[in-house]
Design a protein around this nucleic acid. Structure first.
Length: 588
DNA sequence: GAGCATGCAA
DNA sequence: GCGCATGCATGCTC
């Protein structure tokens, strides 16, 4: 074993990989590591990643090989790579594709070059009900109705099946992208958008046709979906999270393709139009009169001969939709998301039913190419006020979070930040209405929340866009509103527990490229030494995994306003005492 | 049958 | 494991 203390990684035999944050190779090593391992912990000096079966399978599906992974680890590990880890990586990576599904007339075949794998499958009790029937030592035959369910079951048993059984064409529908239009509506796919579409589907290749593309907010997921439609030229069902997004898909399809309005239908609470291109919400699919009733709108999947189903924000796909998706495995499926992480842990179902990850664009890479703004993230820790301190300590666990999140001490920080970023469009985002109302009153800025009619919201958004309003305060509407205007400063004053998605989405609000220095600022204000501070760390995991660094600043309440300004301003220029390491990392 | 308020689900 | 926003259906009014 080669020992080289100068290297940044420690590969441990429990499948975790430690990465030294202050190491000069950090920025170079991190994105590669993230391709096959998940970030799990981020204490100050060392980040812990863990390889899992699924993270390795997704890497394999995206084209990574065993030797790429092990030689990368060997090259950067201080103490080498334990022998058993190398073996296990090989075992997992090779599991993807070890068993594949191919078609044979009406039926399907499970095929493996590994005779032992087939033997093992015959012995699994849970597979009995699928009527697997042995053809020869390497082949099992089964009915195509079990295509989805079987894949779901097999991944649980450690066999991520490669599905090569192909797809139906679906009803034909010519869709031409306005790539060369002379009427000013022309647009060009960016290079990464082209690669993304091609890794989903390439003409003549049997492999493509189902899978997930992972792209940051603001990378143009809709456009990629539309480009895929343009390749396949077939009736398409698009599923998305809310009605605003339904409208947005429709608008973009009409704008970017030659498809006419009568070809595009909306299937939602308001309208039930099934057209060659139909856009629906997940919610209408999962509607039922009572708990043990039928999902009456689920037959939308069979209302037409769809050639493609697009799952927008696939990480939010509701459980009942998985069930139907298992039955339509012969239809091409495209999942789009900014994060494969589901808060309910059903990532394996996404893998087997929608498809494996085909493409991932790291946020930092997009930033490097200038497609999104570069964001500096700062966590500002504010001590609780004396009175809050007491009630915090005596409060029940479940109340603690609320007390910490809504601390009155945050107001001063907000004011300081607004002063610091005077003249920049700023969004303040929070979770508790009481708190937001107080902040709105103190700042004299409008609060946009659920009860406000959409018309009124739109008016405020427009004023903000025109620059007539410089600051707006938004509640959880920000988590859903696709039409929220862009800003260059976001201040998060409270959020829901450890939601990584929420944090990512909020940062997404300031990613649109800026005209001048292309720089944006994300602040998260938390009460120091509280539950909130712990949760804040959790929330940041995903973005840290994407390469963002949070600077941490301790804020102390001073008596005199002027003093506060000085204290805060100063800390941006000099190194905060407790964060020298972060600072050094940034400069490497 | 549009426009609104209400209750419910996840 | 909380608080909030959403979307859907229904039932009322004119």
């Amino acid at each position: 074993m080669q020992i080289d203390q100068k290297r940044p990684l420690v590969v441990q035999s429990d499948f975790t990989v430690l990465l030294e944050v202050r190491h000069p190779e950090f920025d170079q090593v991190r994105p590669l590591l993230a391709r096959f391992a998940d970030l799990v912990k981020t204490p100050e000096h060392i980040h812990t990643y863990r390889m899992s079966a699924l993270s390795l399978w997704n890497a394999a599906a995206a084209g990574m090989t065993t030797s790429e992974i092990t030689s990368f680890l060997e090259e950067h590990a201080k103490f080498g790579v334990p022998h058993n880890i190398k073996q296990d990586i090989r075992r997992f990576v090779e599991r993807y594709g070890l068993v594949r599904i191919e078609s044979l007339g009406e039926d399907l075949l499970l095929i493996s070059d590994d005779v032992e794998a087939i033997k093992e499958m015959c012995s699994f009790r849970t597979l009995r009900s699928y009527g697997l029937c042995q053809v020869d030592s390497q082949t099992l035959r089964f009915s195509s109705i079990y295509r989805g369910a079987l894949k779901q079951e097999l991944i649980k048993l450690g066999y991520p099946v490669q599905d090569l059984a192909g797809y139906t064409r679906g009803e034909e529908l010519p869709i031409r992208l306005r790539g060369d239009a002379s009427d000013g509506k022309a647009f060009q796919l960016r290079d990464y958008q082209t690669s993304a579409v091609e890794s989903f589907y390439r003409e003549g290749s049997i492999m493509g046709g189902s899978g997930v593309l992972v792209l940051p907010c603001g990378a143009g997921k809709t456009i990629i979906g539309i480009a895929a439609m343009g390749k396949l030229n077939c009736a398409t069902l698009i599923l998305t999270t809310n009605t605003t997004s339904v409208n947005q898909w429709k608008r973009e399809i009409l704008e970017k393709t030659d498809v006419t309005e009568d070809m595009v239908g909306e299937y939602s609470g308001m309208k039930k139009d099934v057209r060659p291109i139909t856009i629906a919400t997940y919610q209408i699919l999962t509607y039922r009169k009572s708990k043990d009733d039928l999902f009456i709108h689920m037959d939308l999947f069979n209302k037409r001969d769809w050639g493609l189903i697009v799952y927008d924000e696939v990480h939010l796909l509701p459980a009942p939709v998985f069930r139907v998706t298992a039955d339509i495995q012969a239809t091409r499926r495209l999942g789009l998301t900014a994060t494969l992480v589901r808060e309910d842990g059903r990532e394996e179902d996404v893998f087997s039913l929608v498809g494996p990850k085909r493409y991932e664009m790291p946020w930092k890479e997009l930033e490097g190419q200038g497609w999104i703004a570069s964001v500096s993230c700062t966590e500002i820790r504010v001590p609780l006020l004396q009175a809050e301190q007491d009630s915090y300590l005596s409060a029940e666990a479940r109340q603690k979070m609320r007390i910490a999140s809504t601390s009155k001490g945050k107001l001063n920080v907000i004011k300081q930040l607004l002063a610091k970023h005077k003249g920049e469009q700023t969004i303040i985002i929070g979770q508790y209405l009481d708190q937001l109302k107080q902040v709105a009153q103190a700042l004299g800025a409008p609060l946009i929340y659920g009860q406000m009619p959409h018309e009124e919201r739109e008016e405020l958004y427009n004023q903000f866009r025109r620059g007539e309003l410089q600051t707006i305060i938004v509640s959880k509407v920000a988590n859903f509103a696709v039409d929220l205007p862009d800003a260059s400063v976001a201040i998060q004053i409270s959020g829901s527990y450890g939601s990584r998605q929420e944090e990512a989405q909020r940062l997404g609000r300031i990613l649109r490229p800026k005209s001048d220095a292309n720089k944006a600022f994300f602040y998260t204000v938390v009460s120091s030494d509280t539950k909130e501070q712990e949760y804040a760390l959790n929330r940041q995991l995903f973005l840290i995994e994407q390469g963002y660094q949070y600077r941490i600043e301790e804020y102390s309440q001073a008596e005199d306003e002027g003093e506060i300004t000085a204290a805060l301003d100063n800390s941006y220029r000099s190194k905060p005492l407790n964060q020298q390491s972060e600072e050094e990392v940034l400069s490497t």
